[in-house]
Every structure is written in C-alpha cells, then in structure tokens.
Computed example of a mutant assay.
Amino acid sequence: MCGRYVMARTTADLVAEAEAEADAHLELRQSWNVAPTSDVPVVLERYVGGPAAGRAAVREIHVARWGLVPGWAADDSVGVRAFNARSETVLEKPTFRDAVFSRRCAVPVQGYYEWKTGPGKTKQPFYVHRTDGALTFFAGLYEWWRDPAKAPGEPGSWLLSTSILTAAAPDPAEIRGARQPEVLGELGELHHRMPVPLTRQGMDAWLDPAARNAGELVHRVVGEARTAAAQWTLKAVDPAVGNVRNDGPELLAAPAAEPDSEPALF
C-alpha cells in the first residue's frame, strides 16, 4: 500500500522529469511526509479545448487532493478512504471505475514509506526509493468533483482529487527461487501490498486520454511494476515519520542506535 511519501522537488525539476507543462504560477509545497488529504502534484494528459482529429494531447502538471472523490459523491469525505485503489477491483468499484476508463494520471514521488513489524509488534519505517535519486511515477487516477454548496464559478467550487493504484507485492520465496533482484523480495517482506510504479513506456500508455482499454492498461502496468521496482532500494529511517506533524529532510536519517543496556566495562 502507500500511506505516506516524499515529494520535495521544485516545479521546474518536476516539469523536466515528467516532460510536462505547468502553469507559470504553480508552486509545489515541499514535503518529506506527505499524508492522505494533502495537496499533491499529479501528471495527466488532456486535449486542450476538447479532442479533435490531429490534435495531440498535452501533458500537464496539476495539484490534486490525495484521496479520490468521484463526481457523484454527496460530499468530499469519501476521499479520506480512497487514497489507494486496488488493481484487482479498480474496474468494478463505483468509486474508481469511471476514472480508470478515462481519467488516469501519474503521481510523482521521490520515495514512499512503509512500516515493517518487528519483535514485540514494534514497527520500523523504511524509505523505498530509486537508487539513482530520480522520481518514481505511480499509476494513479483522478476525478473532478463539484461542491454543491458553492455557486458555479465560485473559487473552490471544483475539487481535483487523486488515488494511487496498488497491487500485490512480490512473494519473497518466489523471488529467491527465480533469482530476481533482491529488492523485490525485500518489498514482499516489508508489506503484502505495494504502489504500482510506471515504466517510461507504461507511463505514456497509462496517460493516453484516447485509450479506453482500461482492463488491458491495468494488466500492463501491474505486469511491468517489478521492472520499475527493481530500481528501488530500502532504507530504515527515523520512526518520527509516523507522526504526520513531523516534516523535514531529517526524517530520512537512519534511526538512532539503541543505547547499550549496561555500561561498558574498561
């Protein structure tokens, strides 16, 4: 699954890595502890002015609330429970099924956090990120929702929201037996679910607004997830990341060593 992540890149950096356009006044908030309901950048493609023969889709960066709110929702509270979308049921669930057919996006992250249960039910957070420091783009969905309490055209009357697609993590035993990259087995030991990272070619296909073969696209990006995840590495980090009020690059520091239970004798 994905419940916290890091996105502290500047708008210019994201524009370059995503090969996208952004409004000149768009400013992204740096965060080392992004949590659901936060405003986050998303990358999507759309036909400016509507689709037309020979008109190419434009790739753009927008800011969306993390937690998808479908257009039919009575209020935006549904988004609190819809920050992840399971790939196995995304085509069927009412919350996601419209978006997966026509409103797909990519959610850029520098890395994400996952907690591993240890002895005595202790939990150690790990930071999962690319070894080369480049951004990972998760397969995502987006929706527009109009607030019925606001007048048409009133500022804030439309809400853009997003959700991250997840899939089953690799089986560690299978990875060891197949001699695949070790990090894939580590992901399976960390959690039984994982967000779906996009390959470059998979991202192009996923974002294409003309594509309506949603089932094939979901199958493709889930199938390619291991290829993208093979570039990841895991790092134990400060447990302070568990408190969403903590936010800063210091969260990526290795956890402090446990003090000796007895003083050393000399």
Rank of each mutant, 00 (worst) to 15 (best):
G185R: 05
A139G: 13
A256W: 12
D147S: 06
T227F: 07
L91K: 01
R226K: 15
G71E: 14
R59W: 05
A257M: 15
V183I: 15
F101M: 01
P181R: 07
I61D: 09
V109T: 07
A8L: 08
P125I: 03
K121V: 00
R59N: 08
D75S: 04
V90P: 00
F96D: 01
R4C: 08
K150D: 07
T37W: 10
A225G: 09
D75N: 06
T199A: 04
H62M: 03
D132E: 05
Y112H: 08
G120M: 02
H129W: 08
Q201S: 14
E114Q: 04
L217D: 05
A99T: 00
A211M: 04
D208Y: 01
P170S: 01
L159E: 08
R29T: 11
A253K: 15
T117F: 04
E224T: 10
R29I: 10
W66S: 07
A85Q: 03
A210H: 08
L207V: 09
E189Q: 14
A52E: 15
D171R: 09
E21P: 02
V100K: 00
S87L: 01
A106V: 03
T89D: 01
R176M: 11
C105Y: 01
E186N: 08
V100F: 00
H191G: 06
R46G: 05
E174M: 12
G242E: 09
P209L: 06
R9E: 11
E154M: 04
T11K: 13
A214T: 08
G111M: 02
A257N: 12
R86S: 00
V63I: 07
M7C: 06
D13F: 09
G3C: 07
P36I: 12
E216V: 04
A178N: 11
G118L: 14
A12M: 09
E114F: 03
L165C: 10
E189D: 13
L207W: 11
Y5V: 06
P255Q: 13
N243D: 15
A74G: 13
E224H: 08
A16W: 10
A82L: 12
A167F: 04
D39V: 15
M7I: 08
E19R: 14
P249N: 13
Q180D: 10
A205I: 10
A168N: 07
K150P: 01
A167Q: 09
F137S: 03
T11S: 10
P155G: 06
E45G: 12
A52L: 11
V15M: 11
N243C: 11
V15T: 12
R65F: 04
L234S: 09
R245S: 13
E88D: 09
I61W: 05
P172A: 00
E262W: 06
